[in-house]
């Protein structure tokens, strides 16, 4: 564990909590893509099946359980409890266009053809693109609530911090995982536009609105 990975995990945790609190406090999931949340639940489910097979540390197991539980809690809030507020008209991204390529890619480029490894690889590829339905929704409506933009910033910052962690681990432990690194860089690049607008607008107290 190093400071970059710890900060990354904290950002990830903050993002999830911010999203849950936003929905709970406002009693509404307006502006949130349920499809992205389905993809994230799938990411955690396929990546953390190793909870049953390998033990890394108490920290590792507890975080995995939190990510799994919170992702299903988020889905419950969106699709059951506050379903009436779900903005399905704007959540029109076709997730099969992400799922199918991720399945194919994980069969083509993987470290090992064991079921757990294939699920892990799939989860890494899917995580890289899971935010696209949410970004598509923001681009469709042209705006995001300030709290939603905080959520997106924390979620994007998490993988950016992981990249720094991988650079650090490469030099200190000679550790490198090509699949995670390439997917993580792509994932972070997808947030680049958003980061720019977040820093130039939201942090200066303005609303998150896309340029016309």
């Amino acid at each position: 564990m190093n400071i970059f990975r710890l900060l990354g995990d904290i950002c990830h945790l903050v993002a999830i909590i911010v999203l849950l609190l936003k929905i709970w406090k406002t009693r509404s999931c307006a502006g949130i893509s349920g499809k992205s949340q389905i993809l994230f639940a799938l990411v955690y489910t396929t990546r953390y099946v190793d909870l049953f097979f390998t033990y890394v540390s108490l920290y590792n197991s507890v975080m995995k359980v939190i990510f799994l539980a919170s992702s299903y809690a988020t889905l419950y809030l969106i699709y059951v409890k506050f379903k009436a507020t779900y903005d399905f008209n704007h959540d029109t991204f076709r997730i099969e266009f992400l799922l199918i390529p991720c399945v194919i890619l994980s069969l083509l480029i993987t470290h090992d053809y064991s079921p757990v490894e294939l699920l892990w690889t799939f989860s890494i590829y899917l995580e890289a693109v899971a935010i696209l339905p949410q970004l598509f929704m923001v681009s469709k409506t042209g705006e995001a609530e300030t709290i939603t933009s905080h959520y997106l910033f924390a979620l994007g910052a998490y993988r950016a911090l992981y990249i720094v962690n991988w650079i650090y681990r490469y030099y200190t432990e000679s550790f490198i995982d090509g699949i995670a690194v390439v997917a993580g860089i792509i994932q972070t690049i997808l947030y680049a536009d958003f980061f720019y607008l977040y820093i130039t607008k939201v942090l200066k107290g303005k609303d998150f609105k896309l340029p016309a």
Partner: peptide
């Protein structure tokens, strides 16, 4: 041959 990376990250 690449060693399978340890899965200690989240």
């Amino acid at each position: 041959h690449e060693n399978k990376a340890p899965k200690d990250e989240l």
